[in-house]
Design a protein around this nucleic acid. Structure first.
Lengths: 336, 336
DNA sequence: TTTTAACACGAAAACGTTTTCGGTTAATGT
DNA sequence: ACATTAACCGAAAACGTTTTCGTGTTAAAA
């Protein structure tokens, strides 16, 4: 990199002190218009830009917030980032994004680098592996250091911080209720293993709706898909069972269910209705298009960043952790 | 934020100098094992973490690379980030990602904050609006300051820097050739306005394949979809024309084309074959699934970050700009 | 006993800013 | 003519590190 022009070089070049240059550039009244003009002209001409690192080191404020998400190639998280970005920009904050790739180690690493003073606060959605291990010490340490932290979507109760979650129980209930209202009697649930707590909550909503209509919650109609590789065979299996509807816990599973159904000569929605979770592009462009719970990722991201900035800018006053619940809608399309 | 423990506090607390603490923590031979142990114990206990900003300010190296992309909710760019992330991690670099949302102003703003010393180098894919305005001064300034820069996918020739692009002409050619081989005679092209140069290149490939087979390149079979809102009506129009195949410049257009075809009672691929660009989830889960050019976003990201890091670590030696061309494959599915 | 060498540590500069506290000059008021 | 006050500017500290160069001990060698 080329030798950058700093306040020092300007000062030396113009025969004034660094203080004068600094003040001139910040338009202080202490400096005469004459010297101001001179300094400004020089700075302009040589394209002076203040060094952020130095500023941040001095101010002990970075005006940037760090985000750690499990994965990037994922519609929901993309929209969350979008919301964060916009919320942050409004308040004059920068956003830097890292990904844990669903692994514990990456999460810890990212946390370490970001909590070294590079950011004023953190937004994170916990990695699957971490959820599974139940190792949360890196987060506990964070709150002990009083670094502002807001958890998004994938949260755990024992961490004392602000949280933004979706009403997963309600969403599971809504989706199931919708299928029941459509006259379906044998509704299967396509979920993830227990440790991903949002999956469990959605399952609770599913069970709640069934019970309310005096329908049995049958173990064999609930599948927990463990390995990403096993999606297809497991769905193939359930589709051949005696069912007339499927509530899938995400978009991919829903799309796979439809494909399996078609391959087995079933019509959607006539023979088997399908409702998904996460309303993304797949749901929209699938044939038939898929009814799905729309998670308001944008809203969640925006709310989260607002909570965070509030914490950051009121440091000192330690008020109690807050939790925002963002509700979700069912977007009814052709598959149900 | 709580009062952080720094080298200074350790020094004061233990009655030694900051130099000693620094050296002890970096395991210098100059320090006796005795004091080393004492200092390490203290640092451990109080969870000392070196302040990144201070380090970076001193070293004039941040070990982070900045990425500016047009949008996040986009499969291709997601995979690019993935490649960048992994490539960077291998070399011990952090990645921070910003988005221009396809606007010129955001691009300039992001560039400004990142080029303030926060990053060692930049990876960017140019925003649509910038491409349209043809205002590239912010990039020119960057290369004048000798800040390492690598352009990805959406590049322009007048910027003297490393570039990673896909073989858009070849890809357009492959897709069109495939349709011709399938016996199609009247192939339409669904593209973007000229200023997005990748669109133009793909169109050139399309034309090349047609000419090679002595087929006419008809103006009325080429549509440039300008506004994102106009997608549907424009596609509806072309689908009613006398055509038997469509080559769409991206996934969304391809999916829309299929939907339009079905709505007009046409069978895919019997009546009209469809090939898309960007092989993402939509292509996979659409019915019929869509044949598509797979852009190797992951590879591009990885190559780009490798070029960049090479520049960063060999600063001084100014070697000529290099351009890497990543080829693409056609993934043949049901729609053709 | 004196010289030398090894060892353990500290002072200070440097990275690029901002800000507080003076200090100098000139103009103004009496 | 003297005191006061503006107006303008500079010195230095501070943010948290690392590193170079000294310097003071101590122990070994001469």
């Amino acid at each position: 990199m080329k030798q950058k022009v700093t306040i020092k070089t300007i000062a030396k070049e113009l025969g004034v002190s660094t203080s004068t240059v600094s003040k001139a550039l910040r338009d202080s009244h202490e400096i005469s218009t004459e010297t101001k003009d001179k300094i400004r002209a020089y700075a302009d001409h040589y394209n002076y830009k203040p060094n952020n690192l130095a500023l941040q080191l001095r101010n002990q404020k970075t005006k940037v917030i760090g985000v750690i998400l499990p994965k990037i190639v994922h519609h929901f998280f993309s929209t969350v980032i979008n919301g964060i970005e916009n919320g942050a920009r409004e308040k004059g904050y920068q956003v830097i994004v890292c990904f844990s790739n669903e692994t514990y180690q990456s999460e810890v690493d990212n946390l370490k680098v970001l909590s070294n003073g590079s950011v004023d606060g953190l937004l994170v959605s916990i990695a699957k592996e971490t959820l599974q291990n139940k190792k949360f010490n890196h987060f506990i340490d964070l709150v002990n250091e009083e670094i502002p932290l807001v958890l998004i979507d994938r949260v755990i109760d024992s961490i004392q911080c602000d949280k933004v979650i979706v009403d997963d129980i309600g969403a599971g209930y809504k989706a199931t209720k919708h299928l029941i209202d459509r006259g379906r009697k044998k509704i299967a649930f396509l979920g993830t293993p227990e440790h991903v707590n949002v999956g469990l909550l959605r399952q609770n909503g599913y069970a709640k709706a069934l019970k309310e209509s005096n329908m049995p919650v049958l173990r064999e109609r609930i599948i927990e898909i463990d390995d990403e590789k096993d999606v297809k065979p497991q769905i193939d299996r359930i589709i051949k069972e005696d069912i007339d509807a499927i509530f899938a816990v995400n978009e991919i599973y829903a799309a796979n269910a439809i494909r399996s159904a078609k391959e087995n000569g079933l019509r959607v929605p006539e023979d088997v209705a399908v409702v998904g979770f996460t309303d993304g592009l797949i749901s929209e462009f699938s044939t038939p298009s898929i009814s799905a719970i729309v998670q308001h990722g944008y809203t969640m991201g925006k709310q989260a960043v607002e909570l965070l900035i509030e914490r950051i800018e009121n440091e000192g006053e330690t008020f109690a952790p807050r939790t925002k619940v963002v509700s979700s809608n069912l977007n009814i399309r052709e598959s149900s």
